[in-house]
Computed example of a mutant assay.
Amino acid sequence: MKMHGIDRDRHFMHLHCLWIVGCVASSSLPSVPVSISSPVGSQAILPCKWRSQLDDVPVCHIQWQTPDEPVFEQKGEQQWQASEFEGRVEVPKEKLWEGDCSLILRDVQFGDVGLYESFMVVDGARMKRRVFIQSVQLSVYDHKSKLSLGIGEDLVLKLHTPQAMRVVFQGRNSTEWKVLWIRGDKKLNRGHLEEAEGVVVLRGLRMDNSGTFKVLDSHGLSVSTVKLTVEEVAKTLKLPQIQDKPVGKSTVYRSSSLLLVFVLLISPLIQHLL
């Protein structure tokens, strides 16, 4: 666990004391939490508005927790966050004073799934009390897509998260999964997939590259699934098409004018012959 401006042991004891007090002093939780769904690797915002529960507080002291453990705590300039959320959680200070205590959770992972609860800690006459603000149920899902590319083209696979650790492939007519890429394994990756910023690339597709590609995280869970079809693109010469121009009023008027001019020019000649 990482702490900023708070003595570690002292704060840890203080936090758990507040939880004990909070079991008695906190407002009762609502039966239906707010549901938030987010794709893995993206940013999720867990909503929280404390002014709906409190008129004003001398110091904004916000806590976020799951039913099992603390996640985040902020009091003024002091801040604490659990190790598994380190560097990924934040409650913007400027919004907190305006009444918005929403928790920003970056690089969402499957392990983040669950119920989150927020509380404001308020100084009372005799003891501190925690006022319940909001409960949020977070769910996380993987990315799915279908692609159709031609022979010789490049397949670009997004990794979506720094937690993506490997890419596996299953051919269209196969039941075996083959490892194509492992993060940091230069020997395996050479000649297979090229790694760039946030993506891996398979160059010069062949017909036997048709199948399913999966990006997996460190726990073997699917970050993304891409079903690829490689097609043979026929190289045919396209001849320019000549389109008939539509006949409109302007075309009819122009033809009539030319006919009238022609008649006027040959009329004297006809009269002379007669």
Score class of each variant (00 low, 15 high):
residue 133 I to A: 01
residue 129 R to S: 13
residue 172 R to I: 12
residue 254 R to G: 09
residue 250 S to I: 10
residue 216 L to Y: 12
residue 252 V to Q: 08
residue 148 S to T: 04
residue 210 S to W: 00
residue 133 I to Q: 03
residue 150 G to E: 12
residue 151 I to K: 07
residue 205 L to Y: 04
residue 176 E to D: 15
residue 119 F to V: 08
residue 197 E to Y: 08
residue 173 N to G: 00
residue 200 V to D: 01
residue 209 N to Q: 10
residue 208 D to R: 10
residue 152 G to S: 00
residue 145 S to L: 07
residue 227 K to A: 07
residue 219 H to A: 14
residue 230 V to G: 06
residue 130 R to P: 04
residue 121 V to N: 05
residue 198 G to C: 02
residue 171 G to W: 08
residue 206 R to Q: 11
residue 133 I to H: 01
residue 148 S to M: 14
residue 142 D to S: 15
residue 167 V to E: 15
residue 217 D to G: 02
residue 158 K to R: 14
residue 127 M to G: 09
residue 223 V to Q: 06
residue 224 S to H: 04
residue 190 R to G: 05
residue 161 T to N: 00
residue 168 V to M: 11
residue 233 V to R: 14
residue 179 V to D: 02
residue 226 V to P: 00
residue 187 K to T: 15
residue 180 L to I: 01
residue 157 L to I: 15
residue 254 R to V: 10
residue 227 K to F: 05
residue 198 G to W: 10
residue 231 E to K: 13
residue 236 T to M: 11
residue 244 D to C: 07
residue 162 P to F: 04
residue 194 E to K: 13
residue 204 G to T: 06
residue 242 I to H: 07
residue 133 I to K: 04
residue 170 Q to D: 15
residue 206 R to I: 12
residue 212 T to L: 09
residue 169 F to K: 02
residue 215 V to Q: 05
residue 176 E to C: 04
residue 119 F to P: 00
residue 193 L to I: 01
residue 154 D to P: 01
residue 140 V to H: 05
residue 125 A to G: 02
residue 141 Y to H: 14
residue 247 V to W: 06
residue 195 E to W: 02
residue 149 L to M: 01
residue 167 V to D: 00
residue 250 S to V: 05
residue 243 Q to A: 07
residue 225 T to C: 06
residue 203 R to K: 12
residue 229 T to W: 09
residue 257 S to N: 12
residue 148 S to P: 07
residue 204 G to L: 00
residue 167 V to Y: 05
residue 160 H to V: 11
residue 219 H to K: 13
residue 160 H to C: 00
residue 149 L to I: 06
residue 121 V to P: 00
residue 164 A to M: 08
residue 165 M to R: 10
residue 151 I to L: 12
residue 239 L to Y: 12
residue 223 V to W: 00
residue 132 F to Y: 15
residue 214 K to F: 14
residue 171 G to I: 15
residue 203 R to W: 08
residue 123 D to F: 08
